[in-house]
Amino acid sequence: MDDARLYLRLVSGRARSQLQYRWGFVFDVLGATLVGALDLVAVLVLFSNIAVMDGWSALEVCVLFGVAQTAFALADLLVGHLDRLPVELRAGTFDTVLLQPRSSLLLMIASDFSVRRVGQVALSLAVLAVAWTRLGLGVALLDVALVTLTLVTGTVIFAAIWVIGAATTFWTIDTMELTNSLTYGGRQLTSYPLGIYHAWLRRFVVFVVPLGCVAYFPVRHLVGLEPASTSPLVRLAGVPAAAGLVVVAGFVWRAAVRTYRGTGS
């Protein structure tokens, strides 16, 4: 609880400092939102050629897109700045974090908060809402709860992968791009129905790096595309995936910091 309060305090400090550069901030919000909008354009352009993709209509894919992109944007908002960890390691500023009496991961996550990414969250939620309404899906309590749960677990999955990827740069400084391929690539991957991918890739993103559990299974149920034979538990695949990844992320981060403290910069 105390950690959560500290997080909010530190993050609001960061947010305040970003709002000082007003024009740069406005520009940044617009830019970040536009990036998200262009991803949507890509989906719509593909669908201008076909009516259904792997059995999914354009609006159904937009629901999937909305959920996946919201989860990604939230994770980006919370931990996206971990991309800068290699720079901090080079400059030695990570030592300052280790000198403070708090968890180094907490302090690193709280060390920034890019308010501009709020624009992307809003845009993705808007896509979700519009597609949801036009499909006439209604607001059954259970459905809304499932969407909320999916957004939470999806965000946690993306964030944990980000942390794991950032932690590996303690060992190999120059490989942040590899992490980006899992996070930004994960956004691309989860925005389309899993069925379009090769079987081996599907297995990989469900059982190894559970990006496939971000949005696909619950949304498939919500838009009414779940095969009748599927167990309802599959919709909740994101829960064990998120929980497992959090454990792995904590473990990898601790191991990485231990290595760093063993070898120094």
């Binding site: 993709m53 490989t175 590899l178 690539g185 691309q188 379009i196 991918y197």
Partner: peptide, 30 residues
């Protein structure tokens, strides 16, 4: 930047696989 080169190739390959799947999904129908 050798490690960056390896990481970059892996990234491009991963994205290539994802984009190919989307492209194939459309082309198969049309």
């Amino acid at each position: 930047y050798r490690a960056a080169t390896v990481a970059g190739v892996a990234t491009n390959t991963f994205f290539g696989v994802l984009l190919s799947a989307a492209v194939v999904a459309v082309a198969r129908q049309r």
